[in-house]
Write a protein that binds this DNA or RNA. Structure first.
Lengths: 202, 202, 202, 202
DNA sequence: TATGAATGAGCTTTCATTCAT
DNA sequence: GATGAATGAAAGCTCATTCAT
């Protein structure tokens, strides 16, 4: 029986953390398929045996890492929501949130890109990302609800999805592919203009 | 010496087509990494030797298939552009194009999803998709240019990118992930409303 | 039944010759294992089907080529034997023969090297080379016999073998490996001195 | 990442040794091209995975084995050099060394033959053999130098090469091809006579 | 007689995972 | 608890040769 250990002692926690850090770095640099377990444990300075006592398998490691990552990502986006009156959303507020979104990708655009890729081919990864999407769409919907009486749109649910998708994909293009000659500021400008004008009118 | 045969005779063309058809089907069903060459040729009813006389390697097959696919996809979207006055874009025209986009995904949402996944981790796939993106963004920009004097937006280049990204990702969410409880019509409605209102005002 | 055709018509002879020429060139350049049949027929400008109607298989081609080559090689070495009195071998005669040997390798040192390699791992090639060796050793023995009364050596048979081996390997080193800083003239000098002094005394 | 393990524990050393022993045997019997990795590990009684954790690839195994082999070979030839006055080389000393040479081939004439074959078609093998040749030629040169004042030859460098080549090839013929009806003793006799008479006169 | 499409056995190598020490 | 040697299924690809046209 190879039970997966829940690290309870200091050293254990450190070991597990070391593995995750090494894997995060390698996944970002060389891709997930391009990184094998030997390499991870070598970088982490632990044995392959240790690896398998902390993680059921390679996939489990990835899922745990992704979960952690998306939590940090989410927090960065929505952290300073209390700085403005959420029921009186102004143009600059929309822009501020979008700026947060773009910054949140800077934690590790590479890791995000690599895992995002798997979203479309691996059902476990997909599930995690779907949960994340729901959370984000909810948050957008929540903001819309709070400005309900000022809205020009009727279908808040659909609008939240559309807005979320627009933002996500503009960010992906900018961060994963490089926005080419266009700089991010211009994209954020147009994007926030589009959203503001869509939900609250010009 | 691995010369890749260019099929010139009937039998050749058939064989190559059989391989591509089988691969298309398997890639869609079981994923690209989940499909091996042995399986492809078995499904196609040809030998592994034939496979490698038509394609330098598995990757070359994929790239050729993707190229074909994206051409069909692009055509479906922009095929009936002559049906309306492109310098007098109306709300229903935007909606018509969006409807085309959604339909274009129905050629094979699965194949599209599988290859789209690789876009973020494989540089060859990425190059093909980037070219496609440019083509699409250009087309959007062209439509905007043709309605220049009616536009409320200033930065056409950035707007074209933002619009393309919004549409693409809404379609991906709907087609790859399933729009959940929301039906596609509602998404298209909001999306076209957002775009129309963004570029031409309410 | 796939009988191997003996070319009797002009075109046939040409075709077969073209294949052999192409193969000779490719074997010399890229090695025998490094050359595949497709490449040979492509270079020769004939079809793979033709190839197999002139040669039972790749090996048969090689054996036929080697046979041809060794005949030319042998002729070059012993061609001007009539220029000197073979029963009155002088120092310069020995040197002249050795010079012929070195020149004979220049037909194609590469082809010689490649086939020589197989001598130690392929029994068919070995047989051909063994026959060739016997022929050469006989010829050396014949020269020795013709100078019998002047010889200091007793065991002509063994001496012929030893002489042949010495010459062969010095030539191989010079021609296959490059004699390094030592030039061939010096090697020929020492070699002929050694042989002359061995068989006929100083 | 293919890290090649350096065996540090008992079991490791045994496993690696088992692989090398099996390979040595198979290479000798069936030739190097005629032996595949599956067969080696099967004979060694280890897994294919083990093979590739000790050797980067099949070639690396061969090179390591050849290096080992040539060291043993060299040692056998020159081991008892201290038994005679090297500055007073006598006829029987030359013969003794030649006898050593012939015995050194008996470690494994087959393995020697197989690798020697590759010398002319594989540049890595060639490099190792060239290094070995240099070492041997140097040793011969060293012996000649030590008898400098007694020599009849002038060009020691060329003579060393010629002598080495003569000996090597006579040994190869005897050991790889079989000396036919001639027995080795006769060859050694003539060879040592030739060399002695060449360098020191009759 | 010539062609070249088709064949498929066979090879090397990778890597996630297990388990004896 | 930790180690790392050992495992072996599985994958991609080559190439001499056949045979229907």
């Amino acid at each position: 029986m190879t039970s997966v250990r829940a690290p309870q002692q200091k050293r254990s926690i450190q070991t597990k953390a070391r593995i995750m850090k090494a894997a995060f770095h390698l996944f970002a640099c060389k891709g997930i398929h391009g990184t094998n377990s030997k390499e991870i444990v070598k970088t982490a300075g632990v044995s392959i045996g240790s690896f398998y006592s902390y993680f059921k398998n390679k996939k489990a490691l990835l899922l745990e890492m992704l979960d952690d990552y998306l939590n940090r990502h989410y927090s960065m986006i929505w952290q300073h929501l209390d700085l403005f009156s959420i029921d009186q959303l102004r143009r600059e507020d929309v822009k501020a949130i979008l700026t947060n979104v773009f910054q949140a990708y800077d934690i590790s655009p590479e890791f995000h890109r690599q895992t995002h890729a798997l979203r479309y081919s691996d059902s476990d990864i997909r599930r995690i990302y779907d949960k994340e999407r729901e959370r984000e769409v909810s948050q957008v919907g929540y903001l819309l609800e709070n400005n309900k009486n000022r809205l020009r749109i009727k279908d808040i649910t659909a609008a939240a999805i559309v807005i979320h998708n627009a933002v996500e994909n503009v960010a992906h293009t900018a961060k994963f592919i490089g926005s080419g000659k266009i700089d991010e500021a211009r994209l954020i400008n147009e994007l926030s203009d589009m959203i503001y004008c869509f939900v609250l009118a010009d």
